[in-house]
Amino acid sequence: MNEVKHRKLKISVLRYNPQDPESVPHMQTYELEEADGMTLFIALNEIREKLDPSLQFDYVCRAGICGSCAMLVNGRPALTCRQLTKDLGDEFTLAPLPVFELIGDLSVNTGKWMRGMSERLETWVHAKEQEIDLRRIEEPMDPELAEKLYEVDRCIECGCCVAGCGTARMREDFVGAVGLNKIARFKIDPRDTRSDDDFYELVGDDDGVFGCMSLLGCHDVCPKQLPLQTQIAYVRRKMVAMAFS
C-alpha cells in the first residue's frame, strides 16, 4: 500500500477571552497533519482534542445547515464545516466574525443579533387573524412561486453576509443582507398580507435598504450562494417606487 504524504497545516487562530480582563487578543499557531477530505470543522475538533482543550468555537450540524460555525478564514467569512482544508494554503488564519458579540476565541453570539433583526423586521408571515381557520385546506401555491420562495428561504442566518459587509461594519444599525433578503422573501409570499407601505416602515431608511452601498461582499461570501445582489436590488426598486407613489 502506498503511503500518502499529507501536508502539515499551520493554523493561526485569534485567541481572546473578553471575560478575562488580563486577556489580550493574540494569534496562536497550531500545527496539524491534514487528512483526506478534511474540513476546517474536523481540523478544529482535532486541535481541541489533541492540542488545546481551551479553544472555543461553535458548531452543531456539520453540514452547512445550522449556520453556527461561521468565522473568518483568511479574513473572509466562511462556514468551517463546508470549508475543505485542501482549498487553503499550508498556512492560514482563523478569526471570529466581527459585528457580533464575542463569546471567546472563535465563538460569537450571532443568535442575539439575528433575534434583534427578526423582531425589528417582523420576519414572519403576517396573515389576517380572522382568516386563520385550521380546519380549512391551505391555499395551493404555484410551484414556480414556491421554488422562488424556497430559494431565498434557504438562508441559515450564519452571519457571513453581515461580517462581510463594509456598511454593517461601519454602521452598527444597518440591517444587513440577511434582513433585506428576508424582506424580499416575505414580500413575494402571497400569504403575507403586508403592503409595500408596511415594508417601507421596516426598511425605508438609511439603516435599511438605502444604507446598502452595493459593495456586494454579502453576495460573494454567502455560503448558501443566495442571490443577495438581485434580492437587495428588488427591495430597493420597490421601496424607491414608494417615494413617487
Binding site: 407601505d197 417601507y200 416602515e201 425605508g204 431608511d205 438609511d206 435599511g208 438605502f210 430597493r236 421601496m239 424607491v240 414608494m242 417615494a243
Partner: peptide
C-alpha cells in the same frame, strides 16, 4: 408613517 425622503435621496 415614515418619511419618503430617504427613498428620494437614494434615487
Amino acid at each position: 408613517r415614515r418619511s419618503r425622503w430617504p427613498a428620494r435621496l437614494d434615487y
